[in-house]
């Protein structure tokens, strides 16, 4: 083993990936007139959406109806994990204060510290991502609602004045377009399939629709960063999201659901750290080994 590779210490944190700094070589200079903490919170929101969705999708490993879809779901999860990693690293670089403090000498890189050592109230994902999984129709509906909105966001984020956000968006928009089309086609298949597949699809849509509005809601952080040309105000693409969903519904002969948005707590939603209890359970499983061995090396 060549010691130079790892700066003389060839051991790594046992649970992390091994590209020491995922942003090495990327310009992480702060755009002036942006508050560092705002940028960090913004990146955490986009990262947590991807991370929690990725975790939910990976739960489907070995459970999809066909092996091809098993592989597809694992690939979708991996795409989102890749986006999450860079965005978490960006959050940490923007404001180290958001990174949980670990025991001295811990080899955990900042993006992993953010993924594995925050508690539910510190996560900023939309609640759609955390809802417990159901049947295959459920995973398709969730992925459709999620990826339609995320694609419109990334499309607009390519012009961000922040180099990392622009780069992640430029790459991510292609990946998420694929996710959107894959889930939209499955939506059609299930809607036009058997009575049972259609019943399950509509039931999943009915269950998940109240979480949809959160995807296009604009919070204070979104607004501040949109004003600075770094982020995107979700209300600017709400219409585009609606049009795409409308096309999928119309083609499938499925009525737009009528249930209203799920309320938050005092106006606070997933982006503000208000979550369903499902997130705690998800995190417990995702984080348990990492938390048990914060100094684990190999």
């Amino acid at each position: 083993m060549n010691d130079d590779l790892f700066g003389g210490d060839s051991s790594q944190w046992a649970f992390g990936t091994d590209f020491e700094d995922p942003l090495a070589g990327v310009d992480t200079t702060m755009v002036d007139d942006v508050v560092a903490d705002d940028l960090a919170l913004y990146c955490l929101g986009l990262a947590d959406d991807a991370l929690i969705m990725s975790q939910r999708l990976s739960e489907w490993c070995s459970r999809a109806p066909e092996m091809e879809d098993d592989v597809a779901l694992a690939n979708l999860a991996l795409d989102l994990l890749g986006q999450a990693r860079l965005l978490l690293a960006r959050a940490a670089a923007a404001s180290p204060s958001v990174v949980p403090v670990l025991p001295e000498g811990s080899p955990v890189p900042p993006e992993d510290a953010l993924a594995f050592f925050r508690s539910a109230g510190q996560f900023r994902n939309v609640r759609l991502a955390e809802v417990p999984g159901g049947d295959f129709a459920h995973v398709i509906v969730r992925l459709l609602l999620f990826s339609v909105a995320r694609r419109e966001l990334l499309e607009r984020l390519r012009g961000s004045r922040d180099q990392v956000l622009a780069a992640v968006a430029a790459r991510g928009v292609k990946e998420v377009s694929y996710h959107r089309d894959w889930s939209a086609r499955w939506f059609l298949v299930l809607a036009r399939g058997t009575g049972e597949s259609r019943r399950r699809l509509i039931s999943a849509l009915d269950e998940l629709w109240p979480y949809q509005a959160e995807l296009v809601r604009c919070g204070a952080v979104d607004l501040a960063l949109a004003d600075a040309g770094v982020g995107v105000d979700p209300t600017t693409y709400a219409g585009a999201v609606d049009a795409v969903l409308g096309e999928v519904f119309a083609t499938s002969g499925v009525e737009r659901p009528s249930r209203g948005p799920l309320a938050g707590v005092g106006g606070r939603l997933g982006r503000d750290g208000v979550h369903t209890e499902a997130l705690s359970l998800l995190l417990a499983e995702m984080q348990v080994v990492a938390r048990a061995h914060p100094r684990g090396r190999w």
Partner: peptide, 17 residues
Amino acid sequence: PTYLGCPAMATMRDDLV
């Protein structure tokens, strides 16, 4: 990276080095 989540990046780097 081909894809942002490409898990082969570290191997590519090591191979180059």
